[in-house]
Design a protein around this nucleic acid. Structure first.
Lengths: 206, 206
DNA sequence: AAATATAATGAACAGTGTTAATAAATTGTT
DNA sequence: AACAATTTATTAACACTGTTCATTATATTT
């Protein structure tokens, strides 16, 4: 069935084209300014054609979200070389904050917007492809810290949740201009890093 | 100038009518489904009339946001009766999580959406009326904990930030269906409360 | 009563996601 | 090669969105 395979490939390439164009608009004009019509203009198709390749806009956003996770996971490649899990946790936190501040649009889609989760539910994928990978990384590090008795033993999920919550809380409040209400604008980034470090420090001593 | 005063009053009453109608739609259909036209239908005015009473939709959302803060502040009235600031901090955390889970639409507007912040900047109010009050409550409690040597001394803003970040992180991840990726759906709420308690516990011991 | 200021509106602009009907191109079968 | 079936692409349209402009109706002031 060589002909079917080729068709599949062509289909995938057009899908990729559409996603590339979406991403381009997305990082330039921001999440809110990406429309089906603008994407269609860029790939030089009619707006309705996009609906042949994707079910709806949410599905496109879902794939952009997954691309965001790929970037984030890539930014964590250096982690494997650190043998001390606590140090790995510090770097994970640093990276998380940096990623969020440097890619606010991606971060928005990955952790704030509803759209990607809607697609996961509607197409009942049952899992969150790249999102679950990222969470596993965190849980794995926490588990290793416990195994090596570097932090007090406890429920891995609950502690992972608390750590994630601090990081996400900081980033999401920052990109939504809420933190500047608590700390002077030019001190926000520094304070964020101090907060996450302080969190891991107290976790260590607890 | 009694006539001008009466005019002002009438104006304020219509503004209030519009906000009441907006709120009604808002808590029923959710943030995304509130439109100028639907509000206008409800108050039986033409859509354009709303622009006589409010600059734009963002301004309406800003006022809804402020109403949300009033609710939240009201839910914290019991705090003043607790003399131990650490216990007050525990309750503040509990209340924050409960408020977020019970009023996800308000929470969204207060801490996630950009719209209200846009109005604050555009009309350069210079401050965030009710938001700043809520933040002062937190900072004040943290300060008192330090004064009474119940937690280690440090920068009040930074520590307030970390505490706020955990609470906001938990609530915002929860209402955006992200936490169920880490903990079973029916355990989410319980784990959230455990996380915030754990956070304050470690803060105490640190 | 006439002039002025305020309040309210209908029509329209420029945009949004999405669908149904239709045309064009490609593939499968005789 | 010719015809039928399928896939791909498009045009037109629906039902919305926030917002502005010109116009009308209503009060208020002179």
């Amino acid at each position: 069935m060589g002909i079917l395979e080729r068709k599949e490939k062509q289909r995938d390439e057009i899908r990729k084209m559409i996603l590339e164009a979406s991403m381009q608009l997305f990082v330039k004009d921001g999440f809110e300014n990406v429309s089906i019509r603008k994407i269609a203009d860029l790939v030089e198709y009619s707006p309705t054609t996009l609906y042949i390749y994707f079910k709806d806009k949410n599905e496109i956003l879902f794939h952009l979200c997954e691309m965001g996770f790929e970037r984030m996971i890539a930014s964590n490649l250096a982690l494997v070389q650190i043998e001390n899990p606590i140090d790995r946790l510090y770097l994970l936190g640093e990276n998380y904050i940096n990623f969020g501040l440097e890619n606010p649009e991606y971060y928005d889609l990955m952790f704030i917007q509803n759209a990607p989760m809607k697609t996961i539910r509607e197409q009942n994928l049952g899992h969150w492809p790249n999102g679950d990978i990222a969470l596993e990384t965190l849980k794995h590090i926490i588990q290793e810290c416990m195994d090596k008795k570097l932090i007090p033993t406890g429920d891995v999920a609950t502690i992972s949740m608390a750590v994630w919550a601090v990081a996400h809380g900081l980033v999401s409040l920052a990109i939504r201009q809420r933190l500047e209400r608590l700390v002077e604008p030019d001190k926000v980034v520094q304070s964020m890093h101090e907060s996450i470090r302080w969190m891991i420090n107290t976790l260590k001593k607890a």
